[in-house]
Amino acid sequence: MTRLIGYTRELTPDTGTAADVAVLTAVGAVRVFTDVASADARKRPGLAACLTFLEPGDVLVVSSAAQLSHAVTHFVSTLAALTDRAVEFRSLSEPALCTGVEPGAGPAEVFAALEGLRRRLVSVRTRAGMAAAAASGKRPGRPTVMTPDKVAMAVELRRLDRPITHIARVLGVSANSVQRALDHLPRTS
Rank of each mutant, 00 (worst) to 15 (best):
A112F: 07
G129E: 10
E88W: 03
V23N: 00
T126I: 13
R9L: 08
L47A: 08
A49Y: 13
L68A: 07
L51V: 07
D84T: 14
S63T: 15
T83L: 09
V76P: 00
A113R: 10
L92N: 00
A41Q: 08
A152N: 08
L54W: 04
L114M: 00
L97F: 02
A29K: 09
S93E: 13
C98W: 01
T126Q: 12
V101C: 03
A29V: 05
V87L: 04
M146R: 06
T12D: 03
G137M: 05
D161Y: 15
T17S: 10
L82M: 01
D58R: 07
S123R: 10
T12C: 05
F89E: 08
R85G: 07
V36R: 15
H74A: 15
V27E: 09
S69V: 02
S189P: 11
P148Y: 01
L47C: 06
S174E: 04
D58S: 06
R127M: 12
A26G: 13
R169T: 15
G137R: 07
G141C: 12
V72I: 05
E115W: 06
R187A: 15
V32K: 08
K150V: 06
T78R: 00
L157V: 12
P103A: 00
R180G: 05
G172P: 09
T144E: 14
S63R: 14
T78M: 03
T99Q: 04
L47V: 07
P163H: 06
R180E: 08
G129D: 09
E10T: 12
A39F: 01
V61G: 08
T25N: 01
L114R: 06
A134N: 05
V27G: 02
D58A: 06
V178H: 03
L79G: 07
V61Y: 02
V72P: 00
V72C: 06
L117S: 07
S91G: 09
